[in-house]
């Protein structure tokens, strides 16, 4: 990932980030919607080794922190994404039942998104970032979970092919 893969990976991350900010954010979805960039980052992490997943999580988190619509402190998403990407890579990449079939992949990605968002609220509360009343937070968490469950299987083939293209691996989900 140092010479050839890193610039390609960075370009892909940035392209998905632009799509998130310029296209997905144009819509106000019921129940909170979904984050295409978050889904992409976690899919990328599951397909990568833990070291590359952590680095990808760092890039993704930093871009999410730099998003003008991000309410938290710079570094909050970075921290969460490093840990989340490392964790899903560690758990998922050696487990064939999770990472080699689309259902397991979708399940792992969606559950991780739920917990990442939950930990974002918790760490935000600890750092003094307001997230709204508990009822609204719960609605948004459940909404993001359901939307992610719907969107992940749709974008999974594309994102796995992008990963395979970057790392010259043959298999793609």
């Amino acid at each position: 990932m140092i010479t050839r893969q890193f610039p390609i990976a960075l370009s892909i991350f940035f392209a998905v980030y632009i799509i998130q900010e310029a296209v997905v954010n144009q819509f106000r979805f019921f129940g909170g919607g979904f984050s295409l960039f978050l889904i992409f980052s976690l899919i990328w992490a599951i397909l990568s080794s833990p070291k590359i997943a952590a680095l990808g999580g760092f890039m993704a988190g930093l871009l999410m922190d730099l998003s003008p619509s991000s309410a938290g402190l710079i570094g909050q998403w970075t921290l969460l994404m490093i840990v989340a990407c490392y964790a899903v890579s560690y758990l998922g990449s050696g487990n064939e039942s999770l990472s080699s079939n689309p259902l397991g992949f979708t399940f792992l990605t969606t559950v991780t998104i739920f917990f990442v968002e939950l930990f974002y609220v918790i760490t935000g509360a600890l750092l003094g970032v307001a997230s709204g009343d508990s009822e609204q937070v719960l609605i948004t968490l459940v909404g993001i979970f359901i939307w992610s469950l719907v969107v992940t299987p749709i974008v999974l083939p594309l994102f796995s092919r992008l990963h395979a293209f970057t790392f010259n691996t043959r298999s793609a989900i």
Partner: peptide
């Protein structure tokens, strides 16, 4: 642009 809801 509408803001993303990922950050509540």
């Amino acid at each position: 642009s509408q803001g993303s809801s990922q950050s509540f």
